[in-house]
Amino acid sequence: MTTAITLAGVRKEYGGFALQDIDLELPAGQVMGLVGVNGAGKSTIFRILMGLIKPDGGQVEVCGYRMPQGQVAAKREIGYASDDMRLYKGKSLRWHMDLVRSVYLDWNEPYAAQLLKRFDLRADQAMGGLSHGQRVKALLLLSLARHPKLLLLDEPTTGLDPVARGEVLEAIAEVLGDENRSVLFSSHNTRDVEQISDYIAFLHRGRLVAVKDKESFLESWRRILCQGEWRDEIAAVPEMVSVRRNGSVIELKVRSFHPGLTARLQQLGLAISAVDRMDLEDIFVTSIAAGERQ
């Protein structure tokens, strides 16, 4: 299987921030959601993937090209949009579309027209007068209309109202229909990640805490509600991530869940009243809180 992105042992250090030992692989045709709080290093990873900054160590390959040396060829295959990217205020979207069209041979004008309509944008309007949501959609249009093999989207849904968010997600989801196209996107909105990604990469303080396919990632976590006498052995169970006590009610959150775990808890004298799956938001907050405590 070909990979769209390969990062091996990538390091980057600057100004009190360090990205450490990043190993990441995105198979072609997959969607990966990069989750992490602000300052976790998400944007740095995107810049390294675009060849805009050179890592201190490790190897980077994007669409089969070594970076940053192969950045020109790689960038022909990549559609990149980030939160800190702006277009020329005094110029219209049409002017930007023509500029991009003159650079890439695979620009698809009918699809661009379709996106314009769906995003409710006017091609002749100057970029200066656009709202945040319109700007994000304009950037996305410029990327999507040339059918890039790899979409790198740094926080594409941040600050969007629900309607615009839906439109953006819908456009990204269209890419899912093609098995040769891949997407890496970051978000601190875990709902977006949960909805459309096949893989989840969890970044915290410059380190990848977990990279897994979404279904088994979600499957591996459980919230267990039980009753009984507290014993310190409960917290020592290796799968335990978070413990909350309220009177005799004990709420446990565990990773690497397996059916044997409930038996083990019962052995420790707990009566289990519920075992529930957790959503990504809950997993995200729980593991960050657990990491902070360590």
């Binding site: 045709g29 997959q30 969607v31 997600l169 459309i196 990604s197 096949d198």
Partner: peptide, 8 residues
């Protein structure tokens, strides 16, 4: 693609 849900 149609229901905006991941392939997996």
């Amino acid at each position: 693609a149609g229901s905006k849900v991941s392939v997996i």
